[in-house]
Design a protein around this nucleic acid. Structure first.
Lengths: 82, 82, 82, 82
DNA sequence: GTGGGTTTGTGGCACC
DNA sequence: GGTGCCACAAACCCAC
């Protein structure tokens, strides 16, 4: 990037602008998601729990069960269960 | 949400699926962005600096005046100016 | 803060330095915590689960059970249980 | 960790409690910091700007040179300089 | 109660 | 292949 008025600068500008365009779209989707949560909240659902559910559903079923099992073991060891 | 097999459950499922669909699209855009950075890196650019540039350009749109005020205060209070 | 060389500037500088001192100590503790996790990991424990446990123990017992119950309800509605 | 009542459980409990003790101290420091900000606010200072100052002073210690390089690249590539 | 800001937790990335 | 780092996303907290 020594040649600021040259082709490298143009190339960089192009990359930056592509990124900015994509980030704009991403931000729009994030706003949409917030809106759905807001709507759900208005319908009486607990959005924090909903986020946990979304996270869980994203996980592989095997991994999910392994994690839950391990968490139970740790809980038991700490007296948080039983 | 007492009636887990009832209409509330259906409504919840609908919200969750809308969110998941939107998050899928968001993840795709995030992947696109990573790819642009990767391409830029292949062209010899420093992606970490690029990220800072993107951040600065975003900041400038919103907080430029605050930042300048801050800079003055900081410089003055720390004796870095006059 | 109009009088940059005056008493207000001195006062500000004092506040800033007190904050920085405290943040230094806070950062040191954060490092200590990371180290304990690292040690636990070396002993074969799963640090991600440990973090969950720490979070759970911080919560009020009543709240914790309510959350778990609600999560189960939502899971059932989504077919993540039973 | 199969032996929840055994030595592994004891070891885990020990780790968790060390972490909790450290986090307690960390939380106390965070409270102290909030209090200093509050005191500064009472003295007429703008705490948001103060936070920015603290952040800048921290950055300057580590990343000042990178930042300056970045600024040049940004200005040049975007035609804000020369 | 809602929004903004800060902080914490998670995932991706580079280096070893 | 694992480990530390950095950026992003989520959770928390405060102010309004």
């Amino acid at each position: 990037m020594v040649e600021a008025g040259g082709v490298a600068a143009e190339r960089l500008k192009s990359f930056i602008e592509r990124i900015e365009r994509l980030e704009e779209e991403k931000a729009a989707l994030a706003a949409d998601i917030r809106e759905v949560y807001s709507e759900a909240k208005g319908a009486g659902f607990d959005t924090k729990i909903m986020r946990q559910v979304v996270r869980l559903r994203k996980m592989d079923e095997t991994d999910r069960q392994e994690q839950e099992t391990l968490l139970d073991v740790y809980k038991q060891a700490l007296g948080l269960l039983g």
